[in-house]
Deep mutational scan, measured.
Amino acid sequence: NQASVVANTLIPINTALTLVMMRSEVVTPVGIPAEDIPRLVSMTVNRAVPLGTTLMPDMVKGYA
């Protein structure tokens, strides 16, 4: 099973992502692959992402 990116904290809308905000976890449904974490750093989220939420491609500006 592939690990996905999961919010390690509440990420407010329009926040630039940092490494400490994200962790990898095997979850269903599958979200952004964990190997993309380095690429996500400094990208911003377009909605509030609660703790434990899987990051989906449409949640990160410029990812999809």
Rank of each mutant, 00 (worst) to 15 (best):
N1H: 11
N1D: 15
N1S: 14
N1V: 15
Q2F: 12
Q2L: 14
Q2C: 10
Q2S: 12
V5L: 03
V5S: 04
V6F: 02
A7K: 02
A7F: 02
N8F: 04
T9E: 13
L10N: 08
L10T: 13
L10K: 12
I11M: 04
I11E: 01
I11Q: 00
P12M: 10
P12L: 11
P12N: 15
P12H: 12
P12K: 06
I13P: 12
I13T: 08
I13G: 09
I13C: 10
N14I: 03
N14Q: 10
N14K: 07
N14M: 14
T15L: 05
T15Q: 09
T15H: 13
T15G: 05
T15R: 05
A16V: 14
A16M: 12
L17A: 00
L17P: 02
L17H: 00
T18D: 10
T18R: 07
T18I: 06
T18M: 09
L19F: 08
L19E: 05
L19S: 08
L19P: 14
L19T: 10
V20F: 13
V20C: 06
V20A: 10
M21V: 04
M21H: 13
M21D: 06
M22P: 00
M22R: 00
R23W: 03
R23I: 10
S24L: 07
V26T: 11
V26K: 04
V26F: 08
V26M: 09
V26W: 08
V26Q: 11
V27T: 12
V27G: 03
V27M: 07
T28S: 14
P29C: 06
P29F: 03
P29Y: 04
P29D: 10
V30S: 13
V30Q: 13
G31L: 02
G31Q: 00
G31C: 03
I32Y: 01
I32D: 01
I32L: 08
P33Q: 10
A34Y: 14
E35P: 07
E35C: 13
D36P: 00
D36Y: 07
D36H: 11
D36W: 05
D36Q: 09
I37T: 15
I37M: 14
I37P: 00
P38D: 08
P38G: 11
R39H: 15
R39Q: 07
L40Y: 02
L40E: 00
L40C: 03
L40N: 00
V41N: 03
V41Q: 08
V41E: 05
S42C: 15
S42G: 14
S42K: 11
M43P: 01
M43H: 11
M43D: 03
T44S: 13
T44K: 05
T44E: 10
V45T: 06
V45P: 02
N46K: 09
R47Y: 09
R47L: 12
R47P: 03
R47G: 06
R47D: 06
A48S: 14
A48V: 15
A48M: 11
A48C: 06
A48K: 09
A48P: 15
V49C: 07
P50F: 11
P50H: 15
P50S: 11
L51T: 13
L51C: 14
L51Y: 15
L51D: 10
T53H: 15
T53E: 11
T53W: 08
T53C: 09
T53R: 13
T54P: 07
T54R: 03
T54Q: 03
L55R: 00
L55A: 01
L55D: 01
M56K: 10
M56G: 05
P57D: 07
P57N: 08
D58A: 10
D58S: 12
D58W: 08
D58F: 08
M59E: 03
M59F: 07
M59Y: 14
V60E: 02
V60P: 00
V60H: 02
V60R: 01
K61Q: 11
G62L: 09
G62H: 08
G62V: 04
Y63M: 06
Y63R: 04
A64M: 15
